[in-house]
């Protein structure tokens, strides 16, 4: 692969690679939770035995805050399909298959160029086990660790008129990446609090290795409607505020650390949720509050998500 990259040799391609690497790529579009609960990360709520849950979401990320001279504009649309199944009351399995549309525009010595690709990306498979469950009337507290693996199901060698796409623009990484974390949920009739930590070890493929990613998330959901509970199972309308703190290590290209990649991002996200016994509808906007990225890494403007969940 190294030989093929060198054989391209054109200045535009080289400039694009450098530009992209300078942009970095902090992947925050994690989506591996399906129960009612936080919108942007894992919860510890149960998936009942024998129940199947499907979740769909559209995630749009825009990044134009460029400290370099390339005036980069990155837009990524991700549509993940998430499947969850309760094997037992405590053991659940999850599968996430995303569809991506990635676009990057930048100014090079040859003018304005646009690169990108669209298609199925890398899939993630997780298993979660509830270690602790404390139930009371209208109150549940859960603690559930999880482990998983990101599989290279997305194309990782796409090319365009300028040559091979830089690795962060590829639909897949080509690597198998293990994931581990744990989640906590405290849910009452009136509100819910969730917290989770997760670490992903990114491994090397195509002489490229994304920096490892660590994240800490928190969510608070407050029932806005109905003001008091009536009989039966009423529909809930929640106001949501979430926090995502993400650390990404520097990428490595052919063994050399990229100084313009990785860093720390903290996002705050207000959202809304409509919850019935069969369906959840939700929307949220993630706004970067702190972005301490390395070098000229491209900073994110916002992330917008909208989606639904259905149980069967």
């Amino acid at each position: 692969m190294s030989t093929r990259l060198k054989s391209r040799g054109c200045a535009v391609w080289a400039g694009s690679v450098v530009a992209w690497l300078a942009g970095g790529a902090i992947v925050i579009a994690d989506l591996d939770r399906v129960e009612a609960g936080p919108i942007t990360f894992n919860s510890a709520l149960p998936v009942p035995q024998g129940v199947f849950i499907f979740r769909g979401q559209a995630i749009l990320s825009r990044s134009t805050d460029d400290s370099s001279t390339m005036d980069r504009d990155r837009k990524v649309l991700t549509i993940p399909a998430v499947f969850a199944y309760g094997v037992t009351r405590d053991f659940a399995v999850f599968g996430i298959v995303p569809y991506h549309e990635k676009r990057l525009e930048l100014t090079t010595s040859s003018g304005r160029v646009r690169r990108g690709d669209s298609g199925v990306g890398d899939s993630t498979f997780l298993v979660r086990y509830t270690l602790l469950a404390i139930d009371r009337l209208g109150d549940t507290r859960r603690f559930a660790p999880f482990v998983g693996l990101k599989a290279p199901t997305g194309d990782d060698d796409q090319v365009d008129g300028l040559g091979r796409l830089p690795q962060p623009l590829q639909l897949g990484s080509g690597s198998w990446d293990p994931i581990a974390g744990t989640s906590f949920t405290w849910q009452t009739f009136d509100w819910e609090f969730d917290a989770a930590v997760q670490y992903r070890v990114n491994t090397e493929a195509n002489n490229f290795e994304f920096g490892d990613q660590a994240r800490a998330d928190a969510s608070f959901q407050y029932r806005l409607w109905p003001p008091t509970l009536g009989s039966g199972v009423p529909t809930f309308f929640y106001g949501v505020i979430e926090s995502n703190l993400v650390y990404a290590g520097k990428n490595t290209v052919e063994g050399v650390s990229d100084p313009n990649s990785g860093g720390i991002t903290w996002l705050l996200a207000p959202g809304l949720q409509y919850v019935t016994r069969r369906v959840v509808l939700e929307a949220i906007v993630q706004i970067p509050v702190v972005q301490d990225l390395n070098g000229t890494a491209l900073e994110r403007d916002y992330i917008v998500r909208g989606g639904f969940r259905v149980n069967f």
């Binding site: 129960e35 009612a36 709520l45 149960p46 998936v47 009942p48 035995q49 129940v51 309760g86 209208g138 109150d139 549940t140 849910q187 009452t188 009739f189 819910e192 199972v233 009423p234 529909t235 809930f236 919850v275 019935t276 016994r277 069969r278 959840v280 969940r309 149980n311």
Partner: peptide, 8 residues
């Protein structure tokens, strides 16, 4: 303690 949990 939430509607979505009731289904299961």
């Amino acid at each position: 303690s939430c509607p979505f949990c009731a289904f299961g």
